[in-house]
Design a protein around this nucleic acid. Sequence first.
DNA 1: GCACCGGGAGAACGATCGTTCTCCCGGTCC
DNA 2: GGACCGGGAGAACGATCGTTCTCCCGGTGC
Lengths: 185, 185
Amino acid sequence: MDAESAALKVLDTAERLFDERGVQAVGMDAIRTASGVSLKRLYQVFPSKDLLVEAVLRRRDETVRAALTAHGARTADGPRERALAVFDWLAGWFAEPGFRGCAFINTFGELGGVTPSVAAVARDHKEALRAYFAEQTDALGAPPVLADQLALLANGAMAVAGITGSAEPAAQAKAAAAVLLDAAR
Amino acid sequence: MDAESAALKVLDTAERLFDERGVQAVGMDAIRTASGVSLKRLYQVFPSKDLLVEAVLRRRDETVRAALTAHGARTADGPRERALAVFDWLAGWFAEPGFRGCAFINTFGELGGVTPSVAAVARDHKEALRAYFAEQTDALGAPPVLADQLALLANGAMAVAGITGSAEPAAQAKAAAAVLLDAAR
DNA sequence: GCACCGGGAGAACGATCGTTCTCCCGGTCC
DNA sequence: GGACCGGGAGAACGATCGTTCTCCCGGTGC
């Protein structure tokens, strides 16, 4: 097993276990066992657990950004539709089995007060979501605050869907977003 | 020091430390040192850390519910104003020094996947917030989904304010809530 | 064939944590 | 006054965790 595929397996495994149980409840040994990557190799690729956590979050950040723009480009044909399509994407995510909330919100809650790098990645990620909404609202000529408000709806949906285990918040947030978009015209 | 005042000191100290650093990063010994309550007494009042965590969350739940209704009764004179007053209350909370997000969102992210009692308290608390909004929207004759949407705005504001360290989300959410309330008339 | 190198499996180490136990002291009842 | 009780301070214990080390094996160059 070469270093590259080991890193991939470790990132996949760690992301899944962190989502399921939180970061601190998952030991490096559990990641080793679940991924099949030896501890020696694991520490070659990620020299500490903190760096692994950061790498998982950074990869997830890129994945979500790419998925958002891809989903927007595929299913929507205007700024308004692209903004609303975010909530359809959320609906699919919330419905995945084992969904337990946004990794950035959850990890920030657990480690944000102690690990500045975690807080920074979470901040960057949430800013990127806001910026994506801002692209669409700017194209509509809407006031800048509308992008923040759409982001609040999206983040609220993530938090509530994670805690309640329901996918409904996505549709509720989408309907609210439509009202806000219409009111800004 | 009697058991009652010891319990109070422990709850106050644990709540503050958990908010600052997360639950798992705070040892029982740190609570002992910061509260001045001996370990023996601490374990007499809260027989395990899990029970202490649950007690902290349950007390916080009651505190927030009481503060919400008190704030609504004091500053607002109609259902619409009472719903909007929630966001003013959020603004004051977000501006407190050291604010790092909602304890229920944060603790759910850290322990919700492993400790069912934590997940249950978080669910109850978020349901109570939704129910408070529902009281106001029902009084307005608005459709039930409006309460869910206002709750999404409030929870999104908590998450984003915690991560970004800004109090702005409260005002942004309030403005969005006003638009939704007006659209439902 | 053989020395050598990299990697796997898992033991080992030091730190920390939740929880319990020991020791000691001050107040209290008779 | 003296035996007793409850509580404080902190050591002790067992488990777990992040990280490193040891041992061993299989492949590779010559």
